[in-house]
């Protein structure tokens, strides 16, 4: 019951946080910025509209947003928020979960290719290339967590007695993981310095260019899916930084949602003070995140057993 409740809360709250990023960016630019609930308004507006489909696109194009949205919700069902047990959990679910996210990406890419727009093909190529590299870092993290806990389930990582946290036995290694995971978060969710969500030129886009042809409810699903994905990664980082011990309480949940805002503020600050990388520097950025986690894995072999 509690797991279900926390999941629903998370699903409801996820569109709030990108508003925080916009507020932080507006603060740095000396502007007032859009209202905090802007993303809810956007979703509402999009859901009221109709969709337009090009005559040259096939059923794949309509399938894309639905599958990618489902794939974005899926990981949240496995996530133990703030010390509550996760809704679904079994041995090896983390592997499944990241593959499901891969399926979501695959369908976004296929839908983009289906429009036969040259821009979208270009964006698709970039998206696939960068997320392939990011997967390397993610699975290095899973290897590390397996070495630390001997388990392959999100529930075991963040719920129960031996949770992985900064304050734990090998907390020093978690520092590396947090930095790497933040880099992966920026990559996977197409934020600055990897991709600029506010850019207006198709040639420079990565993620945004793939969804140019979607409209109305389809676009709303894609946006919502993107919020959930960002929420998942941010929650992952927060669980590593702060140990939420069971039993679950309202106070814990509140603290969790406040801490979550910090991750988004960090994203907003980075977007305000950094320019995006040249395309050829992005692989180096992602490779660095992989190297960081691999450092941690190597250290578990020798010293910090």
């Amino acid at each position: 019951m509690i797991s279900f409740l926390s999941l629903v809360l998370a699903l409801l709250a996820a569109p709030l946080y990108p508003g925080i990023i916009l507020k932080v960016k507006a603060f740095f630019a000396g502007k007032k910025g859009p209202p905090l609930l802007i993303k809810y308004y956007t979703l509402l507006k999009l859901l009221q509209k109709g969709s337009v489909y090009s005559t040259s696109s096939s059923f794949v194009f309509t399938l894309g947003p639905v599958v990618s949205f489902a794939a974005a919700i899926f990981p949240l069902c496995f996530f133990p928020f703030a010390g509550s047990a996760s809704l679904v959990s079994f041995y090896g679910d983390v592997v499944l979960l990241f593959y499901i996210m891969g399926i979501g990406r695959f369908f976004t890419v296929v839908a983009a290719l289906d429009t036969a727009s040259p821009f979208e093909g270009m964006g698709a190529a970039r998206e696939v290339f960068f997320s392939t590299l990011a997967e390397l870092a993610i699975f290095a993290i899973l290897i590390l967590f397996y070495r630390l806990t001997g388990s392959l389930s999100l529930n075991d990582y963040f719920h129960g007695e031996n949770i992985i946290t900064l304050a734990g036995v090998s907390g020093a290694l978690i520092v590396l993981v947090i930095v790497a995971l933040f880099m992966v978060l920026l990559t996977e969710n197409s934020r600055v310095p990897v991709d600029d969500p506010a850019t207006h030129l198709e040639l420079t886009m990565i993620h945004e260019v793939m969804i140019l042809d979607h409209s109305g409810p389809d676009l709303a699903l894609i946006e919502l899916g993107a919020f959930y994905k960002l929420f998942f990664y941010a929650a992952f980082i927060i669980q590593l930084i702060f140990p939420f011990t069971a039993p679950f309480s309202i106070l814990n949940m509140l603290l969790f949602f406040i801490l979550m805002a910090l991750v988004y503020v960090a994203v907003g600050v980075i977007e305000s003070i950094m320019a995006r990388f040249k395309m050829d520097l992005v692989p180096k950025f992602i490779l660095t995140s992989f190297a960081l986690v691999f450092f941690a894995v190597i250290l578990t072999m020798g010293v910090l057993q």
């Binding site: 304050a167 907390g171 020093a172 520092v175 590396l176 660095t288 190297a291 960081l292 450092f295």
Partner: peptide, 19 residues
């Protein structure tokens, strides 16, 4: 309890990699 020495050492490794 966070082991501060280890955290500092890991941060040094981080700076090495970044450099």
């Amino acid at each position: 309890m966070i082991n501060i020495l280890e955290v500092i050492l890991v941060l040094i490794l981080l700076t090495v990699l970044l450099s």
